[in-house]
Design a protein around this nucleic acid. Structure first.
Length: 479
DNA sequence: ATGTCC
């Protein structure tokens, strides 16, 4: 199925309204990427999202877009808070999957000689893989507090410092979280999995700052060339998965009672103001808070490994949380639309908030430069630190890309990796990897992903976020 | 992403 796309400029393409679309589609991509996106069903998903009630401005896709459950991954869609819908498929199974980046005072030379011990220590001390559990023991009472308070529970229970909370999107807690909306099964899965990495694209990475693009912003973020960093990518584990699954079932039934046709059952949803919509948002907030506590705990566990393996003091390590961002979330936000201030529910599914300098949601430390945007690439190439912009706020409800985006499906990647030792290829580039899952190395190999530098070039060129620094991986733990 | 089919 070929669809007409109008080129707006080098980085922006419009999918005009047809059929049931209430707004156009808007795709951020370069010429190469748009050619690939045209071949896939992703455009159909962008068009399908545009048909949902209350959608505002456009159904948007970032340059790392690819097919997802109902909504595309790399998609942004905002709905009117009064007359719009909320959809679990617009957030994804891994609620508040996200990334945090911590800086240290170490140089590459401090770490390189101990890199093997370091990657082994991280692998040993941080449970990884599907169904991993066991790093934190939670009572049911404690788990409910985690769901209500997010990062704060972790900090108050010895996993990190008060200042980490300020450097976390939303302060590491979404309001309105009600554990009463979380099923027993979700609670049970969550109880044993706090402080675990998970599998798939989740990772823990020791890296080094390879290049600085913006000196002023980098200085504000505490980044400089040659500095060792720690990046953590994980989410809400089985708890978030179960909450998504539970509410997809609720909404698949509920949506049949609503007076509009769904182009795809995977877009099941509820009006935001309905009991079903409100219940989902309360449960989703619980999973979001769990994910923040999880990343906070992992950061603390990783810090302990660094201290022990390198035999240094916390003062010499000087690990600080630069920032923590969500990649999968629906949020109540205020946005200016055609000159009018409106309350909306922004679904970012594989997309990152990108708020500019001066925005009240940006923490005090970065308010004069803008919100840090953390964009991990594949494990063999690079990751980027960007900064939020006014253009993003004006065009994409303050959103930008979230990663490289797959070019090969997991099965295609496994096929392409046959007979290769991916870990060895990475080792030859000076990157040590430890992993749990049988197929993980093949599914997650660099060639399975778009080149992150090309993706970042699009969002930088389009003005959705600006390049601040590029990081290079040294040691990676995968699930 | 996910106790990758309760």
């Amino acid at each position: 199925m070929t669809r007409e796309l109008i080129k707006i400029n080098d980085y922006v393409w419009e999918l005009p309204r047809t059929g049931n679309m209430r707004v156009p589609g808007r795709i951020y991509a370069d010429g190469d990427m748009i050619a690939a996106i045209r071949q896939e069903d992703t455009l159909i998903q962008v068009a399908n999202v545009a048909s949902l009630p209350g959608i505002l401005k456009a159904s948007m896709a970032m340059p790392d877009v690819h097919q997802g459950y109902g909504f595309p991954i790399g998609g942004v869609a905002a709905f009117d808070w009064q007359d719009g819908i909320v959809s679990p498929g617009g957030v994804g199974y891994d609620i508040n999957c996200g990334v945090r980046l911590a800086t240290t005072r170490l140089a590459e030379g401090d770490v390189r000689p101990r890199l093997e011990d370091l990657v082994n220590g991280l692998y040993r001390n941080i449970p990884s893989g599907v169904g991993s559990q066991g790093s934190v023991k939670l009572t049911e009472r404690d788990e409910k507090t985690v769901l209500r308070t997010g990062s704060r529970w972790a900090v108050e229970n010895g996993f990190g410092e008060e200042r980490d909370i300020e450097h976390t999107e939303e302060g590491g807690v979404l309001p309105g979280a009600d554990p009463g909306e979380v099923s027993d099964r979700a609670m049970l899965r969550g109880k044993k999995q706090l402080g675990t990495l998970g599998s798939g694209n989740h990772f823990l990475e020791v890296g080094v700052v390879d290049e600085i693009y913006d000196d002023t912003v980098a200085r504000s973020f505490g980044l400089y060339e040659g500095q060792v960093t720690l990046m953590i990518h994980t989410g809400s584990r089985g708890l978030g998965y179960q909450i998504c699954d539970d509410f997809l079932a609720v909404m698949a039934r509920h949506v049949q009672t609503l007076p509009f046709d769904l182009p795809d059952r995977q877009l099941s949803c509820a009006m935001i103001q309905s009991p079903q919509g409100q219940r989902y948002l309360s449960a989703m907030a619980c999973a979001a808070n769990y994910a923040w506590a999880n990343r906070q705990i992992l950061m603390h566990l990783a810090r302990e490994v660094l201290l022990n393996v390198l035999h240094i003091s916390p003062r010499d390590l000087a690990m600080r949380l630069l920032y923590d961002v969500c990649h999968n979330i629906a949020k109540k936000e205020e946005h200016l639309i055609e000159g009018k201030r409106r309350t909306v529910c922004v679904h970012r599914k594989g997309a990152t908030r990108s708020f500019p300098a001066g925005h009240p949601a940006v923490c005090a430390a970065y308010r004069s430069v803008g919100q840090p945007v953390l964009v991990p690439g594949d494990m063999g190439r690079a990751s980027y630190v960007l900064v939020g912009t006014e253009t993003a706020l004006a065009e994409t409800f303050g959103s930008t890309c979230h990663g490289a985006g797959r070019v090969l499906s997991r099965t295609a990647a496994k096929k392409a990796a046959k007979g290769r030792a991916i870990y060895r290829e990475l080792e030859d580039k000076g990157i040590l990897v430890r992993w749990t899952g049988r197929g993980t190395m093949a599914e997650e190999m660099p060639d399975a992903y778009k080149d992150i530098s090309q993706v970042v070039a699009v969002v930088h060129g389009a003005g959705l976020s600006r390049k601040v620094a590029r990081l290079r991986p040294m040691a990676v733990v995968k699930g």
